[in-house]
Design a protein around this nucleic acid. Structure first.
Length: 440
DNA sequence: TCTGGGGTCCTAGGACCC
DNA sequence: TCTGGGGTCCTAGGACCC
């Protein structure tokens, strides 16, 4: 036996001990399900949730999907269907969804510490230490617990790689026969299953790659799985290769710890009506900057770069204009006023008269934990301390009495550009005044 | 004066995700 | 009339250096 080679038995043992099993827990129609928890009358009824501005559909209950409402469909386009089928419509209420998300994730943490929260409604779990014969029961137990304690239905996909676990989850959701759990590990008909799924269903294959692959006669997941490594490397680069290996059961994407800090913070909005002058746009940018710096402080971080962008609408008549401009701050900070001043300079660089702006936003980068903050030798320290205590006070007042209790004058008072949310549900779980009253 | 290749770092933009 | 918002990662290409 050559050095570095393993005997068949040793090799098998090594594989056995290394075999990973991932579980992907995904909430079903999450936003719609949250809205339904406090409205038992809506059980079995079609529900949709709208984006900010009540612009388009971002979540649908199964019933709404059956009726034919599509993801991302503009609201005005489906108003007729909504009336015909008496669909319940909600503006998005992210504090409600965020709170439900926390509750679900906390329950999952009771089952394992090896948890990766992937998005507001999804988490990967490491099932490697669960005896193989028990895995499906274990998953069913998780499902039942979450539903009992929160009222949110979830589906669980189980597989030796994350990419396959995502697919297994889709299968679990699609067919009620699986009762919300599908295990693709050592499944006797894996290839047959993969041959029935479209290539675009795969995690990491978006519309662009999907279109390209179809042109190359790769239309099913199975065909992608069996594609030649050289070809994939050439046309889909390293990320594509990783995906294909994962489809073959070789784990290339590991569980990740929660990142210490985000790398960027974005706050942006579309406007209900186009903005044509500078003052309201300045207000909007100042408001976005306030929110972004608030998030920055929540994470205990400071940052040194801000970028502002403005854009006309995609769907409107007339000339298009999109531009962004960024600027480095003299030193990393989390001070709202300093960021607002810098954002204002950036906005002035790119603003042009003669356009109707439909969207604006700010992005903060160069984020580091506050303890790593390097102060400039020439920055007067007292100023800095004053800023910091002002920010702390502002955050605590806004937290105690509701956001925007105190804000910067630059953010404006009337905020005519502010977005529409006509059908928002109460904050049942995060605002005292919205608590549900029970009549006996 | 012109000519050269190779390396790193940074940024903008594309593609993807939910 | 009315078409979301918030992220990450990768790559190509330019600037710069030796």
């Amino acid at each position: 036996m050559k050095f570095g080679e393993l005997s068949p038995i040793l090799f098998t043992q090594q594989i056995m001990s290394q075999t990973k099993i991932f579980g992907l827990v995904d909430c079903n129609n999450f936003y719609a399900s949250c809205e339904r928890v406090f409205r038992p009358k809506l059980r079995g009824k079609p529900i949709i949730v709208l984006s900010n501005n009540d612009g388009c559909v971002i979540a649908r209950s199964n019933e709404a999907k059956t009726i034919g409402i599509t993801m991302g469909q503009p609201y005005f386009e489906c108003e007729k269907l909504i009336r015909q089928h008496n669909i319940a419509v909600f503006s998005s209420n992210f504090s409600l969804y965020g709170d439900f998300s926390n509750r679900v994730m906390n329950i999952l943490e009771e089952f394992t510490k090896d948890l990766e929260i992937y998005s507001i409604d999804e988490a990967f779990m490491d099932f490697s230490n669960i005896p193989k014969s028990d895995i499906e029961n274990h998953a069913q137990n998780i499902r039942k617990t979450i539903f009992k304690w929160t009222g949110i239905p979830v589906s669980i996909g189980i597989a030796p790689t994350k990419t396959l676990a995502k697919l297994a989850n889709k299968i679990a959701k699609k067919n009620p026969i699986h009762k919300g759990v599908f295990n693709i590990t050592n499944h006797p008909h894996t290839d047959q299953i993969l041959s029935k799924l479209e290539v675009g269903e795969v995690w990491g294959i978006g519309w662009r790659l999907s279109k390209f692959l179809k042109q190359c006669n790769i239309t099913t997941v199975l065909q992608l799985k069996n594609a030649k490594e050289e070809w994939i490397k050439k046309h889909m680069a390293v990320t594509g290769l990783r995906t294909v290996l994962e489809l073959n059961g070789i784990p290339k994407i590991e569980m990740e710890d929660r990142p210490e800090a985000q790398k960027s913070i974005i706050t942006s909005r579309s406007f209900r009506n186009p903005i044509t002058t500078l003052p309201p746009l300045k207000e909007a940018v100042a408001t976005f900057t306030s929110r972004a710096t608030e998030k920055l402080r929540e994470q205990g971080c400071v940052a040194s770069y801000i970028q502002v962008y403005i854009s006309t609408g995609y769907h409107q008549q007339g000339a298009m204009y999109r531009e962004n401009f960024g600027k480095e701050l003299p030193y990393p900070t989390a001070s709202t006023s300093e960021f607002i001043a810098t954002a204002d300079e950036c906005l002035k660089k790119i603003f042009k008269y003669g356009y109707g702006y439909k969207k604006a936003g700010v992005m903060i980068t160069g984020i580091v934990p506050k303890r790593h903050q390097q102060l400039d030798l020439f920055t007067p320290l007292p100023d800095y301390q004053k800023q910091e205590s002002l920010m702390t006070m502002m955050d605590s007042l806004n937290w105690r009495w509701g956001s925007d209790t105190i804000k910067f004058g630059a953010a404006g008072v009337q905020q005519k550009w502010h977005y529409r949310q006509e059908k928002r549900s109460p904050n049942y779980t995060t605002q005292w005044e919205d608590l549900l009253t029970i009549k006996l």
